[in-house]
Amino acid sequence: MTSSPSISGPTPQGGTVRHALMLVVATAFLSVVGLVLPHGESGDAFREWFLAHKAFLALIIGLWAVVIIEGLSGLFVTQDALAERLRRLLLTSLLPPLRMIIATSQPRGWLWLPGMGWRPAGEEISEQLEQKLALPMVVLTLLVLPVLGAELTGGETLENHPRMALATHLTTCVIWIGFTMEFLWMVAAAPSKLAYCLKNWVNLVIILLPLVAFLRVLSIFRFTRMLRAGRLLRAYRLRGLWARVWRVVLLFNLIERLQQRDPAKYCASLEKKIEDLEEELARLRTRLAEQRGKKPG
């Protein structure tokens, strides 16, 4: 992934109903896929039943067809280069959930966001999205805790209680869908796609592990068996939970706000920070003076 493309032309107008409907279609496709992915040690019976049910194939084909047809019609909406429009058509046709963030009818460099309308991709909208999504995503991620509790303490209970197993599976599906949608939106808005992926690699792993575990052709490898058993998924979910909570703390400056409730302690902490910075500054000045004093060798 590379940096966001440059934006040209006026702010796009209209398309609200079209993009809102396609957001629903793309989300529905992602949800159907999420239901059949292995997210841990529960839900195998439901997944096998749903995969074998004729409704699964009908939903996948129907939603996929809608994305492709809408993509073809969008080729005639924007004035972008034909190669760019065809690239977007190929991407959304191969991966329909990408229709949430790109479309043949969507001008280059612009995003249509529900409740926000058209926004240029870049640092400003990336920060706004992060602030809007931070708390909802933490609440969603906290669902990891009851899921882990059920998987770790349930044991045979999940096998003997289909309803509990189904509830656990559906909860992990919701978590996975939420992680995937947030990741797609944030990557689309980020000024540097690659930098965002590297910074948030844990979220990317959480999204990709169930997809890898779904590939039964790889089941001969121990790594994939570990994925299907849920051990790696649990580890990364916990790490993702901690990372999200810490990001919210930093994003909303919660630590500093708590310190400000006690003015004396807050002033003391500021004085300590100033003292540390002055010491570091003194060390840097000393190194700079030493380097300038050295004679060319």
Rank of each mutant, 00 (worst) to 15 (best):
A213K: 07
A28P: 12
P107A: 07
L30W: 05
L135Y: 08
L23Q: 05
R228W: 02
L91P: 00
G15D: 02
I125W: 03
V24P: 06
Q291F: 11
W201D: 03
V77Y: 02
C173D: 13
L75Q: 05
M116I: 12
N253S: 12
I175F: 01
R283L: 15
K272P: 01
N203H: 13
T27H: 04
F221Q: 06
E151F: 02
Q291M: 12
H53P: 01
T92P: 00
M22G: 01
S4T: 11
V187W: 03
Q13R: 09
G240E: 08
L208N: 07
I60H: 07
K193F: 08
P12V: 05
G40F: 02
M116L: 14
R228I: 09
V17P: 09
T92C: 05
D80T: 05
A235T: 10
S126G: 07
A28T: 05
L75K: 02
V248N: 05
L75M: 06
P107I: 02
F29R: 00
F56T: 12
E159M: 10
R285N: 15
L57V: 11
S93W: 01
L158F: 01
N160I: 03
K199Y: 07
L129M: 14
P146G: 04
R18G: 01
A26C: 03
A213P: 05
E124L: 14
W176I: 11
R261L: 13
V17T: 14
L281E: 10
A264N: 07
R244L: 12
I175R: 00
G9C: 06
G109W: 03
L72M: 10
H161V: 15
I255R: 12
R119H: 08
Q106N: 10
L94A: 11
V67W: 04
F56I: 02
L211Y: 00
L258H: 02
W201C: 05
R257K: 12
L89S: 01
L145Q: 04
R85C: 04
R244A: 14
I101C: 14
W118V: 04
A189I: 11
A243E: 13
F50D: 08
A195F: 02
L277D: 10
K54C: 00
G74R: 03
S6N: 10
P38M: 00
L51G: 05
R47F: 02
P162Q: 12
G240P: 07
V36L: 03
T141N: 11
L21T: 12
L288I: 01
L51T: 11
L204A: 13
G117K: 11
L91S: 08
G293Q: 12
R85M: 07
R88K: 15
P263Q: 05
F46M: 14
L270E: 13
V212N: 01
P38C: 07
R231P: 00
D262K: 06
A58P: 01
R108A: 09
W176Q: 02
A83V: 07
E41G: 13
C173E: 06
I61S: 01
